[in-house]
Design a binder for these strands. Structure first.
Lengths: 205, 205, 205, 205
DNA sequence: TATGAATGAGCGTTCATTCAT
DNA sequence: CATGAATGAACGCTCATTCAT
């Protein structure tokens, strides 16, 4: 479990700690993360962790930034194959579902800050957030230029709505997939597909 | 030995306990609710709480049912003034926003079970849930009959999507209202109004 | 689970309570017996149990008497088929092993009082105890009369030693049967058989 | 904040904790041992105890190992004065009685694991146990070699039987010495002496 | 006799954070 | 920079016993 201190040439203690925390969350969930565990896994003393991250929450915040960045990358990649803005939106949402399925752990982090009121988001986190909405805004703008997204749509606002409702739908899938199955006789994908339709319909000219 | 609240509500210990729990959640959030606190506030011994609620979760479940029932009532009331299904949907969503604003605490409970994977919802809770989706389904059906809601829409599925996205949007408002204000130069209501437009647009024939 | 109060024609509340306690111990062990459970199973109020058994231990004591009586019966029956005293001792010990196997629950009670120092045995319990040693004494006396048990043996003392060592051996079997299996390559019965041999050898003329 | 025992034994917190636990068991019995008490007596915080003993049972296990080791030492010492195996057995049993009398508390620990089914003995405990049976086996083997112990005796099995029955007899003495006195008009030692005779008789050629 | 609501100290265990070294 | 022992309040939950009715 312990990890030789010299692994990464002394350089990036901070990264090292983050990596260990990540593995631990992946193994046992965000709610079970304890500093003592992180210290043990990192081969450091508890106090040392506090040298780099004065509050436990700081670790979570950093990991959340990373998650948001991964998600952004997925979004950008998803749209690379087409020039059509509507299709980009659709592909972006599919990318979000896949992100949730492939990295439930990163998704947990992403929705943590969306879900817990009272958490002060440090500037760095906000930056990561803005990059995502920024990308969505761009796509919608290009759609308006292309003429297949309705010109009345406020792209900034829509990017928030899109994000919020997508988070809500993924949460429902996460928590109640069995109910969806039972009551709608549908799998997760089909359900999510309908959500995408809903969004596209509301974007179209 | 203490029996502070003996006078008031002495007939209904269970209610009394629930009320105290409610106040505590309101003061310090669901995640900080502890049985010891409830007992103290209720002027009862810890063991006494367990007489009425064998598991801590039972308290939360009861409060959640209550919240869902209040919400359902709001939904039904909101639609009473009109026969138009689309308008009913719109009013219902406004009612949801008001519910959140007036009872942020009840909203926290409502979204708790939507948000935490792995929570087994007891039958009673599911019933309360189904009543809500049931109402939404009815409204959409009537809209299809009236001819102003698109006939291709699956009312069951849509009720889930509506619910999930509304929860997501309210969460965003709850957690990031200041960001909305700063970046969109808009208040909560205007933002939510756009969400309603989005939904209505996607429902229309 | 509740048991109509009139079952046994109002007569024997005490017996009723005892029976319920017995079932509960059988289901979940002596250490998990709680008065609340007993009350529930008996369809009585907690306070009522305390009318009949002022201390929880009183219930256990009564059940222990019963266990001892059952054991005595087994002893007597076991020896009925032969007149030979040594054989009677042997059969008695086999009967004890069977008693343990068939009624682990009664055995738990029997050894409870043998094992827990500081328990005041009420007179009734002592009587049950004395009946058992009394029987053993009789058997040994008859063996001395028959001439196949060594005349120097003090039958009273031997009955205590027999009892104590048998309890010890059964405990070992109860707790460490797997170790016996692993280390001696022997089953419980073969092991116990050696114990009987040991006893018989030490009794013989 | 307290640091009562800081002076004495400050080097060995673990020992300190063990000592305190020992005293507490001596005062109020194994079944009443609680971590809170230990912490209080040791002048430490509860959490500190868990730094050294992650589970309450670990404390008991450590103390049990110690007890077993003391007992083994007594056994070995007891036999040092003679080469005769039978005499060694006899002296060993006397040593066991003395161990019980001098350290009733250690004896309680020794019999705890013999008496409570379902307790998983960790390897270290088993080692201590095996050392004891190992010694007994040796003695019996040497007796067979000397020709004064019956060659048919299986020394492994006999060591278990000896141990189990001795535990049983000591338990009887522990729990019922007054009854022995009353009914046999004999002291503990005389009674135990008869037990030794019984064992020796069953070993002899 | 009978009730059953109420008690409250007690349990084992966790963990973010501190601070003397 | 780094350590890691120490803290101690807090947690959910149990249960023998009492006592006013």
């Amino acid at each position: 479990m312990k990890r030789a201190r010299n692994d990464q040439a002394k350089g990036d203690r901070k990264q090292d700690i983050l990596n260990c925390a990540e593995e631990l969350i992946q193994e046992s969930g965000l709610e079970n993360l304890s500093i003592a565990q992180v210290a043990k896994k990192a081969g450091l003393a508890v106090g040392t962790i506090y040298l780099y991250f004065p509050k436990k929450e700081d670790i979570i915040a950093h990991l959340t930034i990373k998650s948001r960045e991964i998600l952004l990358r997925k979004f950008v990649e998803s749209g690379a194959s087409t020039a059509d803005a509507l299709e980009k939106v659709s592909l972006m949402l599919w990318a979000y579902l896949n992100f949730y399925k492939e990295h439930p752990f990163y998704h947990q982090l992403v929705s943590f800050y969306e879900t817990n009121a009272g958490l002060e988001e440090p500037e760095e986190l906000l930056v990561a957030s803005r990059k995502i909405t920024g990308y969505v805004i761009e796509v919608i703008q290009s759609g308006k230029a292309q003429g297949n997204i309705h010109p009345d749509i406020d792209e900034s606002e829509f990017s928030f709505l899109l994000w919020a409702s997508a988070v809500g739908v993924i949460q429902l899938i996460d928590v109640k997939s069995s109910i969806i199955q039972t009551q709608l006789h549908k799998g997760t994908d089909a359900f999510f597909s309908s959500f995408i339709d809903l969004i596209i319909r509301s974007l179209k000219k």
